[in-house]
Amino acid sequence: MVPIDAVFALGIALFVLGLFGVLFRKNLVVMLMSLELVLNGLNVILAGLGFHLRSPRGSIFAIFVILMAVAEAAVGFALILSYFRQKKTYDIDKLNELKG
């Protein structure tokens, strides 16, 4: 029997680590990986709540989150590839053409 507090703690820890990675790293691919960490933390909390409340809704919502993560990864990689063909770099600091 897993207490819900431990599930919340794990989910929040993964979420915050992912958020920290998105803010801290300057490599576009690693930033996308950190976004996957954020979504994984969210999924842990959803699955834990579904277990805690004895409802299949937790798993169903988490499945939709996974679907959205797949969509995000595919489009993000398409954008990264297209960007890399033009600029030949990963660095997000070079991504400032729209800066006023």
């Binding site: 897993v2 599930v7 794990l10 999924n43 842990v44 699955a47 834990g48 579904g50 277990f51 937790g58 798993s59 988490a62 499945i63």
Partner: peptide, 10 residues
Amino acid sequence: VFFTLQAEYL
């Protein structure tokens, strides 16, 4: 973790 939370499908 999902398996220990009995969310086997997930």
